[in-house]
Amino acid sequence: MLESRWSKLAGLLLLLVILFLVPVIVGGRPYVLHVGVMVLLNIIMVSSLRTIFLSGQISVAHAAFVGCGAYFAGVLAKQFALAPWITIPAGAIMAMVLGVLLGIPFTRVRAIYFAMVSLFGGIFLVDLIRVARTWTGGGTGLSKIPPLAQSFVGQKVPYYYCTLALTIVCLIILWRIEHSRVGMNWKAIAQSHLVASSVGINEAFYRVLALAVGCFFAGLAGAWYAHFNMTLSPDSYGFLPSIFLVMYMLVGGQKSFAGPIIGAGLLYSIPEIFRRLGTAAPLVLGVVMLIVVYLMPEGLAGLYDQLKGQLLKSREERVTKSAAED
């Protein structure tokens, strides 16, 4: 038990060192670092989506909340010339408020019905972004958003390190919430809302809380992205992008905290790694998804346990077989 904990810690440390050295390893190639930043931001988005799923709520609107954070921060920075240290928290809080406002009326809706409502909620938010053209630039998008800092312009390395720090902080917070009483209540509600409320857990409150936490971090990642990419397009936050976030999580493994990290890390990178294939690059992604669906019921993060289980099982079978032969 203790041993596995130490080996886990060592693995984590090794991963951190590698992540820290990435700019050195790739020799500061801007394209790779750009993808690196995007992977990190996607990890925040998918991990925060998993927070919502923990409470048993299937949300297919997460990209829309990312978009709300991004656009709110972008508009504040561009039209009102506010500094990023104001716009980024403001974007996150805006996404959270919207999540709570949309979540409260639908606490009595569950399972597939909730998924459908969230789907339309997400589409509605993106439509609003398109309609508010005077602020957001409508369908053509919002450009010339100020960068995180003037000195960062044209550079990727500082962005990479800042995003890495942000991601680590977000993940630590999400980890702690999940492994606290709050996380336990979420998981309890997800397993049975009836039993959960019979022991005094306020289902509606904790579900809205999960939305608040999840949407906050989605908005945070979005707002950060606004200052990183400096242009935004509503197409990045529609229905399919939301579905893709769900897919990253499911392929990575919903049950494990590492699932979203592995899923977002791998699946976001695949089309970029195979960029040379041009329009065929997503095909590789599709094939990976099929492999995971057919061979790994608990996703990539569940692979280790799955293999261990199979190994134990085959060993047991061998033992019983030899015992039977004796």
Binding site: A188, L194, V195
Partner: peptide, 8 residues
Amino acid sequence: SAYLFPDF
């Protein structure tokens, strides 16, 4: 029925 949290 469904009297507990099965995955805990």
